[in-house]
Design a protein around this nucleic acid. Structure first.
Lengths: 252, 252
DNA sequence: CGTCCTTACGAACACTGTTCTATGAAGGAA
DNA sequence: TTCCTTCATAGAACAGTGTTCGTAAGGACG
């Protein structure tokens, strides 16, 4: 069972385009419910990564065949949506404080990034769809509130929320790829990135300087900074841009 | 054969970590070369999307078995890298003009976005790896040059290039998903997005207003703007942020 | 008791990337 | 010319994938 805070997701109607299951599990004793399936999928995800989460693997873990799952989950896609929303329940959000809207947006961004990164390559899921689960809604509401409290005009805020998600998700995804490759390589994390950076550096400096003068000269800068620093930088970039839209700002 | 401008990719050493083929095709008369395979893959991509590009499908198109491809391409991943680089050859880049660095960055961003979007869901490929092909290098060099000409400090520029790519690629990917789903639905593009937006709007306004006051009230803003406008907005956000790092700017 | 409805699930379908193995043809050396 | 090596070509197979079909079982209801 999930032991984490799931937010309060009672009474939120499900998106109308999420196809209804063939029926409701009703009062099944304990065997094979939607929650149980999602729990199992989450366990596999954490232990072996998203690619290991297959219908067959989940079924096997529950001592049954893959066909059995389709009574509780209409799709693999739906299973992944549910899985993402379960994970999203771990994201803790600050109470809006108008004075600190910039910091709070960063806090939320880091929190989303942290939780996604904590669950293998789950970040691949939100990139492939628009999350509509209760927890996505909860986060959306909160971030939007923070921005409005900071004086960001409504339409700007609405679009900005969208752009921030895209950025956070894609960065988390990119990060998860490296983790996956590092795992597959069998090397230590430090050894892996050292070797990786070494190869890229060698490649950059080996380029013909007359055709790629800037790349060759600035190879050190191109390779500087780890994932965290770059994520932070992009965030800062977007927030500075957003500030310029606040009413009464320098630009308008 | 590819009829498009491939940039000049002669003499650029291949990345050392790209495993060498079992041997060089040398002077094979005409049957089954790496170029031919990539050409075929590109044709399938454009006609049916990235999911249709399988080793079997490419082989079948060439009247052979999948095993034959592995003499010219060590991997499916490598095939996709080659495919991406072939497509990237279509991207036309402006000559750097220090006065217009902001506009030029936008131009490049739109160009990358345009070309990626023109080839089905190829945008999924660069998200899953760091492009290292000759064309990626060519673009990197140019964008970096434009930024430096605009007075962006080298390390900031280096990181910014990275962040801009991530943004462009992920937005193009998100867009391609909608195109894929629209294709699969069989509906007209206009009809598809109308129906989609209608469902989301209905969902948002059906939410309990006491728990989601901001989402409910600003539903119109949350849904305003098409993909292009939102892409443009995110770009503007990042560029405004980047401006603030230019030496002699308001902030520093 | 019989009927109905829903969950459970083995088997099968049509795929996927990749490897092993055998075959055949071409090129160089003696 | 003959031999031998080298390498592109593929057929077959392996171990997977998501999903559907048809059937069996079990509880609820009339």
């Amino acid at each position: 069972m999930a032991t984490v805070d799931q937010g309060q997701d009672a009474e939120i109607p499900a998106p109308p385009w999420r196809k209804r299951r063939r029926s409701t599990p009703a009062k099944a004793k304990q065997p094979l419910s939607q929650d149980l399936i999602v729990d199992t999928a989450l366990r596999i995800l954490d232990a072996e990564g998203l690619d290991a989460v297959s219908m067959r693997r989940v079924a096997q873990e529950l001592d049954t065949g893959p066909a059995s799952l389709y009574a509780h989950v209409s799709n693999k896609e739906e299973l992944l949506e549910l899985l993402l929303d379960r994970v999203s329940g771990e994201m803790r959000l600050p109470e809006p404080d108008p004075e600190r809207w910039r910091e709070q947006i960063k806090e939320v961004a880091h929190e989303i990034h942290r939780v996604l990164s904590a669950h293998a390559d789950i970040a691949r899921v939100p990139l492939g769809m628009i999350p509509t689960g209760p927890n996505a809604l909860r986060i959306n509401e909160r971030v939007m509130t923070i921005m409005l409290a900071g004086g960001v005009p409504p339409r700007i805020a609405a679009w900005a929320v969208d752009r921030f998600y895209l950025y956070i998700n894609s960065d988390a995804y990119e990060g998860s790829i490296h983790v996956t490759k590092q795992r597959a390589s069998g090397l230590e994390p430090a050894e892996y990135i050292a070797r990786f950076l070494g190869q890229v550096r060698e490649y950059f400096t080996s380029l013909p300087a007359d055709r790629f003068p800037v790349t060759v000269r600035h190879a050190p800068e191109l390779m500087s900074g780890d994932g965290g620093e770059r994520f932070e930088f992009g965030l800062e970039l977007m927030i500075r841009g957003l500030e310029s839209y606040v009413e009464g700002s320098k630009e308008a």
